[in-house]
Simulated scan of single mutants.
Amino acid sequence: MRTKGGGPAGASRSRDGAQEGVNDEREPQFVPEKPRRSLDEVILPDAVRQRVELALDLVEHHTLLYDIWNLRSIDPYRRGTALNLYGPSGTGKSLCAEALAHRLGRPVINVDYAQIESKYVGETPKNIVRCFEVAREHGAVLVFDEADSILGSRLSRVSQSADHAVNVSRAVMLRQLDRFDGLVVFTTNFPRNYDAAFVRRILAHVRFELPDPETLHRLWQRLLPEALPRETGLDQGALAQESAGLAGGDLVNVITGAAAAAARRGGESGVVTAADLVAEIKNARRARAEVGRAPDPGMPADYTVRRLDSREVPPELRAPAVVEAEGAESPDAVTAEGAEPPDTAAPPAPAGSAGEAEA
């Protein structure tokens, strides 16, 4: 009898598996990797670096703190250490998480939401357990990027099976954190989305901030490769002043864009100039202002989009009738191009219809 799918037996098993709904997805591979960056390579403001070093002390001196100095008497259930690195995008959170593993001399396992989330019932909790098992087996540091997707609030009103599955996954993550005796690092741009139970289990929260002028200067010194052709006398201090408000990740994009412009020119003029860098800095700043939206601290964690008031829209982008109406004695007489006066207009849509759809 032939097997391995090349004959009747293999084909039969394949058909049976399809009919029985066997999970045909490949199991996620949580692969320990050697950290490539050291903590010395991470350029951070002094205040942030001090908090990172303190968080590292909690890991390196765990035995002293809990066993010899008996902090276990007031914190008896903590076995490992969980850290949370949060703050604006591009400020070095993921890079720092890798560097922490490098300092500890351990491999790192990077986990994202797509790796553990599964469409099959019960598979997501299994994937969570699996990534902790692999980390325990290899003595690796677990890093969860975009952790707000994994540590989000549990649902108090369970109305369908998907809601129940979310709560089960959160409960499994909580148990694994309690049982894991290694280091787990979470990174996020949206810390307000965390469930309170996870916040309590995380031993140290480190806020990453946009670089100050001195840090920007050091970033420019570090990020410009020696092999990159550039005009002589490039003033990195002036570049630091020009790029105020940008993050290290933005500077990487700035340098890459300027290098591409130099490559396009080619020849003797194919060097990165201050003009190239300033142009890309302006593009990066414009993108931060116009593309995407950072969460407003005053808004609920699950609502970060709002409709603009008409007065916030530049005149050149508004309908002509709206602009004309601003100078009229009765600004409510015309509210949009082609709209009827209030007394004849159609009644407003009930709250929660159009507004919510647009949001």
Score class of each variant (00 low, 15 high):
R157M: 10
V129P: 00
T344K: 03
R222M: 02
A351E: 14
R136H: 01
A275R: 08
V31D: 04
N167D: 04
L251C: 04
A359W: 06
E290R: 11
S14A: 10
P45H: 08
A238V: 07
A260V: 11
R49I: 04
A197I: 11
P314R: 04
R207I: 08
Y194V: 00
E337H: 15
V185T: 01
R175T: 06
A325R: 02
A147N: 09
P76W: 15
C96H: 06
V168C: 06
G355S: 05
G352N: 01
A274H: 08
V323L: 14
R2Q: 08
L151T: 02
V134E: 07
V254F: 07
Q176N: 08
A196K: 13
R154M: 10
Q50G: 14
A319T: 03
L64R: 09
T256Y: 09
E312I: 13
E41N: 08
K126R: 13
D195R: 05
L177W: 07
P347K: 11
E41C: 08
V313E: 04
S330L: 00
S149N: 08
P341Y: 10
P211E: 13
L104T: 02
R288T: 06
P229N: 00
I43W: 09
A165C: 04
V278T: 05
E316D: 05
C96W: 03
D195I: 01
E146Y: 02
S153W: 02
Y120F: 13
L151V: 00
L246C: 07
A244Y: 12
R26C: 08
D296Q: 06
P347H: 12
S169R: 10
E337N: 08
P300R: 12
P191W: 01
F198I: 01
G139A: 01
E340R: 14
A114F: 02
L95Y: 09
A247S: 15
R222V: 15
